[in-house]
Design a binder for these strands. Structure first.
Length: 387
DNA sequence: AAGCAACCCAACCGCCGTTTC
DNA sequence: TGAAACGGCGGTTGGGTTGCT
């Protein structure tokens, strides 16, 4: 059953000939494509308008970038996909010169397989069940006697020797009520072994993130004497104060994964984890910060990015969690409830080289994740002003 | 060299939301 | 106001290519 636009006429299908391409190219160059249904007739093509449109968008458009995807592009696809899911058109918008079809094909033929090879579910970017089973079945450190000790799950050894994964992860897009996890913490060096995108919490050296640093400083204990450090104060469920100072800038600036950062977290942070507070806040060398909630053993508390989000239909679609005008909030405190309903902001701003500020702001805005502590929201306009 | 399988990617299909009449 | 037309999107398909046996 053909599409209604071409069901009434005899249209050619299949691959386009060079002559057809030439006709379409010439016509659209001269006349534009205000009405696709009229294009084939006017251009002398026996195709349906839809087919013409597709051919133009995916192949003939002059601004198309062809060839293999760069690492940066691959990274971008991964990052945006974590937030948006299979929204190829949206993802492609962040890749100049790439089409949704191209992105989709690249995902299906390449990235998807890499994720699976890393034990990650390509839909959710979470660990595949099989991988989780592996983790549990190895009863311990996952290294000594583990034939799969290079498996990503083998890195989930918690600081207290418990072989239970210290957190659960799920898609913030499809299942907003669950806790998201930065994939960089899940995967071994490889796909995610890149300067990870994340929530920018303050970094003056990286000009691309300066705007976000403004937001961070308003409500967050940023160490102004040391640009590389982030001070965080929390209370555990017993009300005891926990201070975490993270020095991200003194770490390696090469391609070491965030797993490494996790492993190298200050002891206070580890203690913090052991008290059941669950924190996964890491910054990579680009000063992008993953901030999420983890709930070991069902304990509540920790950082809460409260989800007072609304479900917005426009822009992101219903299933996405978006929150404007309510800003993201981080609440340290025992009162933070369990079953935290939050979204993973980690990919909201990806600070990798080449990522544009425009994207950061746009995606942040679209996800409604302007952050401030203490409820002091900051609008996108202001951010841009402050840049 | 032939046969086969896996892979890649262009194109199609069908659905959905918006616009037009 | 409702139906039709349209544009856009994501999922799927099928043909060409490549690599392996």
């Amino acid at each position: 059953m053909g599409h209604h636009c071409c069901s009434k006429q005899k249209v050619k299908r299949g691959l386009w000939s060079p002559e057809e391409d030439e006709k379409l190219l010439r016509y659209i160059t001269a006349n534009g494509h205000s009405c696709w249904s009229a294009v084939p007739k006017n251009a002398g093509l026996q195709r349906c308008g839809k087919s013409c449109r597709l051919r133009w968008i995916n192949y003939l458009r002059p601004d198309l970038k062809r060839g293999t995807f760069s690492e940066q592009e691959e990274r971008t696809i991964l990052d945006v996909h974590r937030i948006l899911g299979n929204r190829w058109a949206q993802i492609a918008k962040h890749l100049p010169g790439r089409t949704d079809n191209e992105v989709k094909n690249f995902w299906n033929s390449c990235i998807k397989k890499k994720l699976i090879a890393q034990g990650l579910d390509p839909k959710t970017h979470n660990l595949l069940p099989a991988s989780k089973n592996l983790l549990h079945s190895h009863g311990g450190n996952g290294t000594a006697n583990n034939p799969n000790n290079n498996h990503p799950t083998s890195q989930f050894q918690s600081s207290n020797g418990n072989d239970t994964p210290p957190f659960t992860i799920s898609s913030p897009t499809k299942a907003p009520a669950t806790v998201a996890m930065p994939p960089s913490m899940l995967s071994p060096p490889g796909l995610y072994d890149v300067p990870n995108p994340g929530m920018v919490m303050g970094q003056h050296e990286d000009h691309a993130h300066h705007h976000a640093a403004v937001a961070m400083q308003q409500g967050y204990p940023y160490d102004h004497n040391n640009n590389s450090a982030l001070l965080m104060n929390f209370r555990d469920r017993n009300g005891a104060a926990v201070h975490v100072s993270m020095d991200f800038m003194n770490g390696s600036s090469n391609s070491s994964s965030s797993i490494d950062h996790a492993a190298g977290m200050p002891s206070a942070a580890n203690d913090f984890n052991q008290q059941g507070m669950g924190i996964a806040a890491f910054m990579d060398e680009t000063a992008a910060m993953w901030a999420t909630v983890i709930e070991p053993d069902g304990m509540g508390g920790g950082i809460e990015m409260s989800n007072q989000h609304q479900h917005q239909k426009q822009g992101l679609g219903q299933e996405e969690v978006v929150g404007p005008p309510t800003p993201m909030m981080m609440n340290g405190g025992a009162a933070a409830g369990k079953g935290v309903d939050m979204m993973d902001v980690s990919s909201a701003v990806y600070g990798s080289a080449g990522a544009t500020t425009a994207f950061d702001l746009e995606l942040m805005e679209s996800c409604g994740m302007f952050y401030s502590g203490a409820g002091h929201g900051i609008g996108i306009d202001q951010l841009q002003w402050d840049c």
